[in-house]
């Protein structure tokens, strides 16, 4: 075998790595570009603000947008406090014992459960067992359990980034543990926790499988009225019109995909920029 000049081999390998990075990122940018290019023409105020008509071939996607927003906001309202408390327990109170190890293992595994299995679970427990029916609340609860590990993990890392010395300073003044957490640790961890929450909202807005049997409906002639209503949801709507309805006008499908994509990407961008901003002006 010929031994390559190390300098040359470095140059070659770097090119290869660069090529791999392009291969990883470029197609996704291309996908986004295709959707924007084909979907932009469908976007109009009417498309965003009216009901679908004539078997969804004309009209807008308002009920789907509102449905997704209501499911997602219910989910985050449930999951955020529980997740933050769990993170506080793990980061501030938990000792290094068996229970803590089991909790960590449980979080890791919750994070890995396939989304469709969450859908099954939601169907079993919320729709059937608790008799909530196929409804916003059943879907939201399903999504909130699915998001729990993500919220816990991000909240925990933002709590962990608050220097230990702040806790010591507060505790040494005779302030109790909970008061220290409440008035010193939490205020400084809030930006990180909120960034994590926004990223979670973005992620669950695009989830389809968990709401498939718990909340989503093919078509609902009215806007969501209570949390016990079945609703249309944007990702499910996209799935339906792109696979189940033949001869669907292409620009409506692209338009729906664009709205969903923009919703998700805008929220993610906000979260990412917020994180950069808070990191820069962090006081310690």
């Amino acid at each position: 075998m010929i031994k390559l000049n190390p300098k040359l081999s470095q140059k070659f390998s770097y090119t290869l790595l660069c090529f791999a990075a392009i291969l990883a990122i470029a197609p996704v940018i291309l996908m986004v570009f295709i959707i924007i290019k084909n979907g932009a023409s469908a976007i109009s105020w009417e498309f965003l603000s009216s009901m679908p008509k004539s078997g969804m071939c004309v009209g807008g996607i308002l009920p789907a947008i509102l449905g997704t927003l209501s499911i997602v906001s219910c989910a985050i309202v449930v999951t955020l406090p529980v997740g933050v408390c769990a993170a506080i327990y793990l980061n501030e109170y938990a000792k290094d014992n068996m229970l803590t190890r089991i909790i960590k293992l449980a979080i890791v595994n919750l994070a890995g459960v396939p989304s469709v299995v969450y859908g099954l679970f939601g169907l079993g427990i919320f729709v059937m067992f608790l008799k909530l029916g196929v409804s916003i609340i059943a879907g939201a609860l399903t999504l909130s359990i699915m998001e729990l590990p993500v919220i816990i993990t991000t909240a925990r890392s933002s709590l962990g980034s608050v220097p230990y010395s702040f806790r010591e300073a507060s505790l040494s003044l005779g302030v109790s543990r909970w008061q220290t957490i409440r008035h010193v640790v939490l205020p400084n961890a809030i930006p990180g926790i909120l960034t994590g929450a926004i990223l979670s909202i973005a992620r669950i807005s695009g989830e389809t499988a968990p709401i498939l049997f718990t909340a989503a409906a093919f078509y609902v002639p009215h806007l969501p009225r209570s949390i016990f209503d079945q609703v249309m949801a944007l990702p499910y709507h996209l799935y339906i019109i792109s696979t189940q309805i033949p001869n669907m006008p292409k620009n409506i499908i692209y338009g729906t995909a664009l709205v969903l994509l923009m919703m998700v990407l805008t929220m993610s961008c906000i979260a990412i920029f917020a994180r950069i901003y808070f990191r820069k002006r962090r006081k310690w």
Binding site: I103, L110, W178
Partner: peptide
């Protein structure tokens, strides 16, 4: 303080409860 710390503890263990619940519903 005591009540809040108990609530935090319960939330801390909630992940375990969900893993068990998911498993048992699928298993059932």
């Amino acid at each position: 303080d005591f009540i809040i710390e108990k609530i935090i503890f319960i939330c801390g263990t909630v992940s375990i409860i969900f893993v068990i619940l998911i498993f048992s519903f699928l298993f059932k």
